[in-house]
Design a binder for these strands. Structure first.
Length: 112
DNA sequence: AAGGTGACAGTTT
DNA sequence: TAAACTGCCACCT
């Protein structure tokens, strides 16, 4: 429908730009959008990412601690972890190992 | 129209 | 050091 929701649409766009095998944080996306203080809105946007097309790789978005906070929102809790492992990273206790290594900063990559 | 919500983040105790 | 609280701002009912 004609729901603009610039914020959501913008968030989806950035998330879809995340390269495979990389992950980013809600705050990084929010900051890239100029709403560093709206990190929660990014997570909220992901809430509407379900069923969106093209598919939104929400599994590539984790919190600042590299913790799979939103795994519970997927079809299955283990889906997010499996998807990330499929991308070549390792998850332990719902936390991404070497999170800093896989971290993808839109501000740096897209603004480069 | 107003209030409440939330997949975060930063600061303080 | 770790744990807990507040602030935040757009979306939803």
């Amino acid at each position: 429908m004609a729901n603009k929701s610039k914020f959501f649409d913008d968030v989806f766009d950035v998330v879809r730009l995340i390269p495979k095998g990389r992950i980013t944080s809600y705050g990084a996306i929010a900051k890239y959008l100029g709403a560093a203080r709206s990190s929660r809105l990014v997570g909220y946007a992901m809430n509407a990412a379900h069923g969106e097309v093209p598919s939104v790789p929400a599994h590539r978005v984790v919190n600042r601690n590299g913790l799979l906070t939103g795994k519970h929102h997927f079809a299955t809790e283990s889906m997010m972890q499996e998807l990330l492992e499929k991308e070549g990273m390792i998850i332990k206790e719902d936390q991404v190992i070497n999170f800093s290594t896989y971290f993808w900063d839109p501000m740096k990559e897209l603004s480069l």
